[in-house]
Amino acid sequence: MEDKNLQSGTNLAASPTANWEPRIVAFLCNWCSYAGADLAGVSRFQYPPNIRIIRVPCSGRVSANMILDALKAGADGVLVSGCHPGDCHYISGNLHARRRFGLLKNFLEFLGIEPGRINFSWVSASEGEQFSEVVKKVTGRVKALGPTRRLVKEIRID
């Protein structure tokens, strides 16, 4: 997919124009959500092309650093998705992650980051349709918020 905005780089934190499309970084766990995304593709479930998928071994691997780094780099939204509780390939990775994400989401909202910028979900390998629904929901939320401004690092070049 040729993405004009991604190529032009500097405008990633773009102004809300009529054809502005959000960019959402999605951290998907290897065992469930990534496979779920794959299934969505194979099963031809449509979902908005706004997400950029990063495959991680487990949702427990995703740290606050990574989520914030995505926001700093100008991502308009972040989605982290893992296995349903009880299904984790590593038994408890997602359960540890759940505590962390709950705190982080509350904390960022406390500091004034808009709710909806960071999103968490459980999607299993058999839930292709659910995956497309999650992406639709997240994209809708982020679109409603508009381009990200807070926490974005800017370098001005003349």
């Binding site: 500097t10 405008n11 934190a13 780099a73 100008g74 690092k153 370098i155 070049i157």
Partner: peptide, 9 residues
Amino acid sequence: DEVVRQAGR
């Protein structure tokens, strides 16, 4: 050197 979204300084 810092590079952010292909702008560097």
